[in-house]
Design a protein around this nucleic acid. Sequence first.
RNA 1: GCGGGUAUGGCGGAACUGGCAGACGCGCUAGUCUUAGGAACUAGUUCUUCGGAGUGCAGGUUCGAUUCCUGUUACCCGCACCA
Length: 799
Amino acid sequence: METKKIEKKWQKYWKENHTFEAKNNSTKEKYYVLVEFPYPSGAGLHVGHVRSYASLDAVARKKRMEGYNVLFPMGWDAFGLPAEEYAIKNHVHPSVAVKENIKTFKGQLESLGLSFDWSREIATTDPKYYKWTQWQFLKFYEAGLAYKAKKTINWCPNCKIGLANEEVEGGCCERCGGPIVHKEKEQWMLGMKQYAERLLDGLKDTSFQEKTKLAQINWIGKSTGAEIDFLIDDTDEKLKVYTTRPDTIFGVTFMVIAPEHPILKKLEARILNMDEIRAYQDFASHKSEMERTQLNKDKTGVKILGFYAINPVTKTKIPVYISDYVMMNYGTGAIMAVPAHDERDYEFAKKFDIPIIEVIKGGDISKEAYVGDGEMVNSSFLNGIETKQEAIAKILEYMDKEGIGHPSVKYRLQDWVFSRQRFWGEPIPMIKCENCGWVPVPYEDLPVKLPNVASYEPTENGESPLADIPEFVNCKCPKCGNDAKRETDTMPNWAGSSWYWLRYMDPHNDKEFVSMDALKYFGQVDWYNGGMEHATRHLLYARFWNNFLYDQGLVPNAEPFKLRTSHGMILGSNGEKMSKSKGNVINPNDCVNEYGADALRVYEMFIGDYEKEVNWNTNSLNGCKKFLDRVERIGAKLNSKTVYSPTLEVLINKTIKKVTEDLDNLKFNTAISSLMILLNEMEKQETITKKDYRTLLLLLNPMAPHITEELNEKYELGAKCCESKWPKYDDTKLIDETVTIAIQVNGKLRGTIEVPLDTTENKIQKLALENENVKKHTEGKEIIKVIVIKNKIVNIVVK
RNA sequence: GCGGGUAUGGCGGAACUGGCAGACGCGCUAGUCUUAGGAACUAGUUCUUCGGAGUGCAGGUUCGAUUCCUGUUACCCGCACCA
């Protein structure tokens, strides 16, 4: 039978027999394998998806054979801009395009024979799904963690959309690449910052790959320092600063506050150069994020005339500047500047001709700021202290006693901007009432559905297109019954993916977002694989969300994922990222048509180190096809015996061990190469036994599920592979009876000898010295030492 | 600037806990069979002046280093005026 028919045949069999459906009330131990669900783009499946799905499919299939009740689900992360843009152009509801795309994607995934449990398929755009996304938003709201705030946000003037920090790349919009500006806007926020420490700490309870943990730690950006109050002269007003170096307080010669700092408003009456300040504020806000970060060497700012700050330790008057190198959204939006020991402060001081006081010995402050450690000077009671830790401890003790400062911890992580001014997202289920303020949509009224309309363009003032739809906007206040208006912002793309793995556990439940029974049984995701590009954003949002649900008693574990792994990208054969414009895109469909799904799967697992990016190579795909053809052809050598061939027994046992371990350790490439080695050896035999062949097929089945089932059936070797037990190896049969021992002279290989296993060291040494070639290299030389490592190597040291 | 990673044949990559570097595959070469082959099979394939030399480079530890240590270079990724 030809490949295509075989593959269709087995795909049909699995579907009709519900072979891969996980059971919710199983007595078996569960194993939850999760791959990131795709955004169903019009372009269809990418070979990169296949790499991840095929590899984790092999894991899932093997775990099933090992006796686990495996949950391996798939769904669609289908909200997002492309569908909306398509809708704007063609005036069709985005759900229409999404439906089409899902159909294409699903067909492609099915043609690969991936063992997803399709009975649990979900889509974030399905009202039955986003009802519960909205429901969970209300939980955040009730807990005080969802709030509306006027925020200086990252605004993309091109997309007319507010972006989270996570969506800004180098000052540019991640989507359109255009520059980001700052804009004040009322936005729904989720209080993620409060969870910073938890998110940091929770990493200890996961076995994420180290690089993923580090990316998260970096992103959360914890820093330990102190908050110190500087009084403003002639007032009770305080300027609170955050610093990691309170020990340098005697070196403070000026202060800098962010241009948006509220104290400017408060002390407006005293400020003599308010015009100049306003002009600078204006200049800073119109500067794009790009300019603000990239031209970072050139410091700008304005000295505030009209008040001073008082150094709480030295009681000296200190001038205050505004400058955009201080950010309002980090720390307190104000810093104490120590130009002698901070590069940025140094540059600013040089530019504005501010004095520089050295308080730590070791550098040359006429040339640059010295940021290293050293002896404290010009610092009153700190003088003479040699280490940073000691100096910080002493000054903090002093500050605490005097009530002027205290230790403080800050995080880079910000609250999550949860509003988007877009149509194609989950409506935020809130209602604004003149009398009652913000009122949540009652639970029984969920979901707040997206309406059917003709135009999907954002409004000119940047509001969601929903704002232009009176039938959607106008409603009654659930509390007082008066006329009210619906929130027209929608949730960000990350919302639906922040809990989807939970819904898979109980996808058809219309009473609860997931039943507690299902949650308790399936617990955490055992193995979650996805792209490295999601190591910070998606993974942090998801962990935050799950930690919150845990605090609400809604899920039984704080951390959602035990293990997180990432696959490397697949690049075009020219080493560049696959893209239409470069003409190097490989379509998985074409590969399946020409080589078969099994060959594509095996190739993508064999292609190289799973975690590294790799160039596509169609020749190599063909090589994998040839391997499968050889597996098929060797069936002709079958004899009727049901034990292992003695000549193959050790190798088969070794191969079982290797494949078993490799599939658990992301080493898909060497798992396959070990099967190739086994096949090579089988081809050298006159005949092979049924047991030899069946073991090969069972081991290969997770990678190449169709052809192995077919051959297993054809030669009547036993139960269906997918319904059989994973082969076990015999520890006592892993070692060959003879070993080859290398003989070195002065560390250089001069010969090898074959000896029975566990030959004594004396005997080996004797044999080694008798070796002809070895003699040649030892003749006339003094043998100083002979090192014999049993079963391995001999090294003869001569002079 | 900070944090992390990588470096092995023509190519993708193997190598357990320090013990025969280059497994496995691609490509290439020669041959067999064929009307033909971009099929299949067989043999070979790190370089070499045939002494040796070889895992980015320079050292070190060791009987022995791709593996451990010190220094260094290149490239890749993440974060970045974060106080």
